[in-house]
Amino acid sequence: MLIFASSDKGGTGRSVTSCNLAYRLSLLGRDVAYLDFDFGSPTAGAIFEIPKMERGTPDGGLHSYILGEATEPARVDVRKMTERTSLQERPPGSGKLTLFPGDFGGAEFHLTDNHIKAAMKLFHDVEREFDVCIVDLSAGRSSALDISLNAISPRVRKKKQDKDKDRIRWLLFHRWTTQHVIAAGGLLFGDKGIVPYAMEVGFKRADFMRLVRTVRTAVPDTSAFGEKTTAEQTLWVTRSDDHLKALAKGRSLGQDLLAGTTPLEPMLLWREQVIMDLDVNRRLAKPATAQAFDKLATKVDDDEAWEGI
């Protein structure tokens, strides 16, 4: 299964949520590959706490591979390379967790047929080796996004037999704010957005929309005001949330497209990291945060649950 992680802009929590999704899927017993396709800012290594990969790798990252400068993309076993002791442990029944890092000093580039062919081969190879492959894309309409859509287009991607169903998910992450809801709607449905471009490269609109779901990140509640929340603050939060729901629905980002939400997590405000059950048990992270990542992992992993959203 291929899961593409896109976002309307930077700062949405796309990468940290995707890393947590990868970790939770591995706990479900899935062998997971994490492809850092954020060519300009590949920082998944920092989230997995791999010091030598904090801003990508200096040799053979995905940027170099797509450009034809590396014959094989670099990869690291997250549990073997992380400095975080609790993440090094592999619980019984869990799957592999492998990072394919981007390049240190990488950048956006002009799209060519050779780049698309390289991405097609990459996706084909990781799908054969891993149960789940998460492709973390650069924010907005980027070359990484364009390459990916071309590489999974019905025009070039061979159809599989029904018994080996072609499983693709496209997640659009956005913060639960007016600015981000507007931007997410524009990225998905705007004249130069994801859906029009998907149709341009060969998708039928209805077929592509079956792949797409949204994830609302860092959703606050009244606790964000502190322990002593006033009646006025509670009313304001309720009205603001109602406004955002109406705004999202008006931009076709309503409940029927929603895969999940993640709460505002204080730990992640200071440090983007994998939230583990140990963090919850130590009362460092909210139980709701770990539960949200678990629910999202279950939904993307289950075809019936995905179709039922």
Rank of each mutant, 00 (worst) to 15 (best):
V201S: 00
G93F: 05
L21F: 06
E232Y: 10
T177C: 00
K245C: 09
T230N: 07
G250E: 08
A70L: 02
L268N: 06
G10M: 07
M1D: 11
E304R: 14
R75F: 10
L25M: 12
L296T: 03
K80H: 06
D301A: 14
R24T: 05
S64D: 15
D146M: 15
R84F: 01
I47M: 02
D279V: 11
A290I: 07
R24H: 13
H180M: 10
T98S: 09
A248V: 04
S153M: 04
R167E: 13
T214C: 10
L244G: 01
L137S: 08
I168P: 01
V76E: 08
P92Y: 04
D136E: 06
G93M: 06
L97V: 09
G105L: 07
A144Q: 06
T82K: 05
I47H: 01
I309V: 13
E129N: 07
K163L: 13
V201Y: 00
H180C: 07
E69Q: 12
E69G: 03
R210I: 04
L27T: 00
T229V: 15
F130E: 01
V78L: 02
D136L: 03
M276R: 09
I152T: 06
W236H: 15
I50F: 04
A44L: 07
L235I: 09
K9Q: 09
V215H: 04
G68K: 08
L149S: 01
T57V: 07
K249R: 14
S86H: 11
K159I: 09
G10Y: 07
D207Q: 10
N114D: 15
I66P: 04
G193C: 05
L87M: 08
K286A: 12
S143Y: 02
F203G: 02
L258W: 08
D302Q: 08
T57Q: 02
M81Y: 11
M1P: 12
F100A: 03
A33Q: 00
V135E: 04
F203C: 03
V156H: 15
I168E: 07
L87I: 10
F130H: 04
D162H: 13
K286V: 06
R157T: 05
A305F: 10
E108P: 06
K228Q: 15
D164T: 11
E265N: 04
M120N: 11
S240L: 09
E227N: 13
